[in-house]
Amino acid sequence: MKALEVENLRKTYRYGSKLVEAVRSVSLTLAVGEVLAFLGPNGAGKTTTIKMIAGLIRPDAGRVRIAGVDPHHNPQALRYLGAVLEGNRNLYWRLTPEENLEYFGVLKGLSCREARRRGKVLLERFDLLSKRRTTVQTLSRGMQQKLALAVALVHQPKLLLLDEPTLGLDVEATQYVKALVKAIASEGCAILLTTHQLDIAEELSSSVAIIQKGEIIAASPTRDLIRQFSGTAYTIEVEGELDPARITALQQVGAEVQEERVVYMGSPEGLYQVFEILRPLPLVQVKKDSADLTEIFLKLLQSTDTGLTMTNNK
């Protein structure tokens, strides 16, 4: 069973006499243990989609299933859902971490005893045990974020929604949260995360969906997407200067020589001819041009104006 199935979600808002289509026919699926980076510029429809998934906004059309249950018709679906929607703002600041965990555990359907037990496990795991009796308002931003994550996990959900989980965190806290997200996914929890930090999305996600003006313009496994947008050029760095005979030979097989670097844009087989010419010079590095998610994201957003979309649902 999929952790999340979203089919053709639509949402239109009315502002006075004006109708604004916030989300148009969005479909997503998320398997157990998968991390989906849900990306898009501000106002693209990310938050509306996430809130429709969580049952907080009612869609005009379409269907949501969390572990097979529709949250808009059966509140029991919310037992399978954890969400950090507004960073550290989903906590009671006057309560301590252990009190927050116990309260939200019961709110999610656990018994008081079970909520307390789970709270203790999570405090230990998230390295918050020493702060368990400190009120949330006096914790650092990073600790609050960790606690918000722990609260969202207290009832062991099958799907976790994370809206900007690393926003405003320092480098150390960001690394910690990233490691936690990876660990949570490896334990079988499906995660849908939104972020504007595309390097983090690239590092954490197994698949990517990009939304623009309420429509999904790309949905694909992260590696496939990067491969698809990566070039075919190889850059080879050699130690020392190349002699004129080698330069001529390299130019004959289509390579370009730039001081101590050789740039080759041909087939992978042709690359070995380049190596033969360079032999026995010591190589410093051989690198294939690789696109990053930021580059891909910007290219895709620009291409939507020309009507190009790209989806590759598994």
Binding site: A77, L78, L85, E86, N90, Y92, F104, L107, K108, G109
Partner: peptide
């Protein structure tokens, strides 16, 4: 910001 969490209760 805690209001939405209350509406996420089963």
């Amino acid at each position: 910001g805690t209001l939405e969490q209350l509406f996420l209760s089963p």
